[in-house]
């Protein structure tokens, strides 16, 4: 498809030169602005990480309530098909949680950025000669505290990722097993699997509540 575009394109040399000049001017005009924006991004990485963690806690609390309700309604399910539907809905909720803490998700990237910012700051403060020793020490201490808090938050997120992955896998495996049981018309056995799952869901809900208590946005 790309080669067809290329083959079909005819560009006049004069026009091409003008276009290149405009492009070069545009790139040059953007460079200082981009550099400024990049430095601003670096400087706010820790603040942004804290804000995102705060928002994450709020959204996780909402999902936690839905999971609690699912565990309650799961106990009363009398029909395997209804149970499968309920597990599918739960997978959707757990997916929301995992999406937020995935390694290639926004929060994980911000966490890594905030940590590298703290490292860079500590290195640059080490070379700093403008401030009085006590002023320099104060800044170093504050950045060390921020770094420790960021590392702790990242550890909590790592733990959450592990828990949510396990829960998602357990839900999908149970759902597949229930599907297999239904194929051989073992409806009673399928119901047993659904009811046993409630315990796992409650356990996940407890873990989620612990996580909500443990996550502390750095610098707050």
């Amino acid at each position: 498809m790309v080669s067809e575009f290329a083959a079909g394109a005819t560009v006049k040399p004069g026009l091409f030169g003008a276009a290149m000049l405009v492009m070069a001017l545009f790139v040059l005009s953007q460079t200082p602005a981009r550099a400024e924006a990049d430095s601003k991004t670096g400087a706010t990485a820790d603040t942004e990480f804290s804000q995102q963690l705060g928002e994450l806690k709020k959204s996780f609390a909402d999902v936690g309530r839905t999971i609690d309700e699912s565990a309650k309604s799961n106990d009363t399910i009398q029909n395997p098909e209804q149970g499968r539907k309920s597990i599918e809905e739960l997978r959707d909720q757990v997916s929301t949680l995992l999406n937020a803490v995935a390694d290639n998700g926004e929060i994980s990237k911000l966490g890594a950025k905030a940590l590298s910012l703290a490292d860079e700051k500590l290195k640059s403060l080490d070379r700093e000669t403008r401030y009085k020793p006590e002023e320099k020490q104060y800044l170093v201490n504050r950045w060390r505290e921020l770094k420790t808090a960021t590392e702790a938050a990242i550890r909590e997120l790592d733990g959450a990722r592990k828990d949510f992955s396990e829960l998602l896998r357990s839900l999908q495996t149970s759902e597949d097993y229930i599907g297999e049981l239904m194929q051989i018309r073992e409806h009673e056995k399928a119901l047993q699997v659904i009811h046993q799952l409630s315990e796992g869901i409650r356990d996940a809900s407890v873990k989620l509540k612990k996580l909500l208590g443990a996550i502390q946005p750095p610098g707050v």
């Binding site: 995992l98 999406n99 995935a102 390694d103 290639n104 998700g105 990722r161 592990k162 992955s165």
Partner: peptide
């Protein structure tokens, strides 16, 4: 490119 960690990496 995957920033694979030692052990387990979960990607969306």
């Amino acid at each position: 490119k995957v920033d694979a960690k030692a052990g387990v990496t979960v990607l969306r």
